[in-house]
Design a protein around this nucleic acid. Sequence first.
DNA 1: TTACTATAGTGTATGTCGTACACTATTGTC
DNA 2: GACAATAGTGTACGACATACACTATAGTAA
Lengths: 115, 115
Amino acid sequence: MSKSQLDEVIHSFLVEMKRGTMTIIVLTQLQTKQYGYSLLTVLEKKKTGIEAGTLYPLLRRLEKQGLLQSEWDTSESRPRKFYQLSDLGKEVLERIKKEWDLLSNQMDHFLGEVL
Amino acid sequence: MSKSQLDEVIHSFLVEMKRGTMTIIVLTQLQTKQYGYSLLTVLEKKKTGIEAGTLYPLLRRLEKQGLLQSEWDTSESRPRKFYQLSDLGKEVLERIKKEWDLLSNQMDHFLGEVL
DNA sequence: TTACTATAGTGTATGTCGTACACTATTGTC
DNA sequence: GACAATAGTGTACGACATACACTATAGTAA
């Protein structure tokens, strides 16, 4: 089979894996207050592969779900929207950490069977 | 905030996390030949939470993608559809194992920052 | 013999979220 | 003045797990 078919399947797999993990990553980074563009550069440096077109809608979605709260800072020359975990967001992050550990152990169990 | 709101968010998160991980699990289990209903009971015992309505379409989708191959066994009283990894499937599983390790390490890094 | 469960599978609409753009605005730098 | 960097909004699309409906029949118990 072709190399590109393999790469295509792997790429699709990675896209699907990001569903869920993107939320985890963003929640961990917003335990302390941070604005969108700053978070974007941090996540780019950490090689998450996230783009602006993905991050900003995700921030808004998480805020809509009540996990984040935001406030505008217009004191600088450029207005910036700062985000931070809400109380619900903090609880969700605690639970997600536990769920991730369970899932990760399960995946390690299954992948331990790979010949 | 309500307990059920927290549970709802966690549930949604787990659903998203299954995208991707379900494929991994099924591929690991079909390194050796197995039929659908048997695989279903194995995965139920291993607490993956997968249902028949999810597994059978996934098996067909993976076969369509060329990762699995199947053959009918009609020698028993009941016809059974056996599945097994294709050559592409084996390569994909090797690559996915590596990608999972990278992703898992990255998640552990981020979750290590949880206060 | 009948009724029910277990065994085995097919088909499909829906909701969710990352992707991939288009778009806007303006500050800062050369 | 032109361009890049800084900062953000809006939205259509594709992929996949979910959640059913549906089919068929062998095996078991009464």
